[in-house]
């Protein structure tokens, strides 16, 4: 409950909106429950196409993005968000199930694209404190 106060409710403009994009419903359910428990307003999308529309509508404060979604990979979604000037300011935290060494590949991939980089990379399974910490940091960075 203390965390609740420190994060979500402390903001005068109401709870912060967090968009969770992952193709696995169980993952989005878990992350949404976790974030809601800590005072955030969580929104879930299991499909990247749907996610882009929702992001445009909702204007979330932070986006949690899985990179390895089928169909259009999370990388494509990341590029689209980054190129959209109205969305480019939203911090993106990559939450993905790939191995550590592949995350390194992704890092160099992002720098080769000359795009802004994700705010943070988190590996699944997610450690709740770590995720909440990164969300807090990203919000603080924007503000």
């Amino acid at each position: 409950m203390r965390l609740h106060l420190v994060t979500g409710e402390v903001d005068m403009g109401g709870a912060k909106r967090i968009m969770i994009v992952d193709d696995e419903p169980s993952m989005t359910t878990y992350l949404a429950t976790l974030l809601e428990d800590h005072g955030y307003e969580a929104h879930c999308a299991n499909d990247p196409e749907e996610a882009l529309e929702r992001i445009r509508d909702l204007r979330p404060d932070v986006i949690l993005l899985d990179l390895l979604m089928p169909k259009k990979s999370g990388v494509t979604l990341f590029q689209k968000i980054s190129r959209d000037e109205s969305l480019a300011h939203i911090p993106i935290i990559v939450v993905t199930g790939i191995h550590d060494h592949m995350i390194e590949d992704f890092r160099s991939f992002f720098s080769s694209l000359k795009l802004r980089r994700p705010f943070a990379f988190l590996e699944k399974p997610v450690v709740p404190e770590e995720l909440l910490g990164k969300v807090r940091e990203s919000l603080a960075a924007v503000n």
């Binding site: 169980s26 878990y30 976790l34 809601e36 699944k124 399974p125 997610v126």
Partner: peptide, 25 residues
């Protein structure tokens, strides 16, 4: 690791749902 992550997540959701008294969750 994935399985444990899933089980961890599931257990968290169940705990939270019981607290919220949310049968669907």
């Amino acid at each position: 690791k994935n399985i444990l992550g899933g089980l961890d997540g599931g257990a968290y959701v169940v705990r939270s749902a019981l607290r919220r008294n949310d049968p669907e969750l």
